[in-house]
């Protein structure tokens, strides 16, 4: 689904912050992306989300060469990738329902289907009674779940999450990761950038460790049932 081959990236004329990244994210896989703050996790996620293009190397997403991808094709490709932002990025002037409905409206889905799908996904994340709530009226954990609902409502093949548990407590963090696990079981490839090691250790998934701009894949740990 996503393939990096000797990819490097630098901002402007600054130092190369990602070097020789070669990794393949397969369909239905689950990876934690770890590394110290400033290691380049968000940059790597942004490249997977087509917000940044590599300054060297080859990057392919859903079979498309990102280096030669035409701008007009990007929106359709982005709609196949769900993204959960660290800061949620919910639109305060819209209700939770409308925030989650945005990707479907962008995809041109019919309003009746949107109502059905958005209601179902908000119920799934435990916010069935907050459809019309303003994001400002929701707690941090609830806002994060709205953001997750928005990322997955279009049933993307890939789900990227940037520190999805960064601003919630341990219990909510675990609940959010359970949601990701459910999605994973439904066949979605998941990459979660996090530095919350205690949380990672509770799940058996493989890790991508970023150190000094280089990426190393580590096998998942055995987790006692």
């Amino acid at each position: 689904m996503i393939s990096f081959d000797n990819v490097g990236f630098r901002y402007g004329v600054g130092p190369e912050i990602l070097q020789d990244v070669s990794i393949s994210i397969e369909a239905g896989s689950f990876h934690f992306l770890t590394g110290a703050s400033g290691a380049g996790k968000t940059t790597l996620l942004n490249m997977m989300h087509l917000s940044l293009r590599p300054t060297r190397g080859f990057l392919s997403i859903l079979g498309q060469d990102v280096g030669t991808l035409r701008r007009a094709k990007m929106p359709a490709l982005r709609r196949q990738i769900g993204m959960v932002f660290q800061d949620f990025r919910l639109l305060d002037h819209m209700s939770a329902f409308d925030n989650v409905a945005l990707p479907l409206r962008l995809a041109g889905q019919r309003e009746r289907e949107i109502r059905r799908d958005v209601t179902a996904i908000l119920e799934w994340v435990g916010l069935g009674d907050a459809l019309q709530a303003s994001p400002r009226a929701l707690s941090g954990g609830e806002q994060q779940r709205v953001a997750i609902a928005r990322a997955v409502v279009g049933r993307p093949g890939i789900l990227l999450a940037d520190e999805p548990t960064g601003s919630v407590d341990e219990a909510i963090g675990q609940r959010i990761l359970r949601l990701f696990e459910e999605l994973h079981r439904l066949g979605t490839a998941i990459v979660i950038a996090t530095h919350n090691r205690s949380l990672i250790e509770r799940f058996p998934h493989a890790r991508l460790e970023l150190t000094d701009g280089r990426l190393v894949r580590l096998p998942g740990r055995a987790v006692p049932q």
Binding site: P75, L91, L106
Partner: peptide, 15 residues
């Protein structure tokens, strides 16, 4: 910021 978000959700410039 809203425009950036719309782009990231797959909105085209025309939309």
């Amino acid at each position: 910021q809203e425009i950036e978000l719309l782009h990231s959700l797959g909105a085209s410039d025309g939309y």
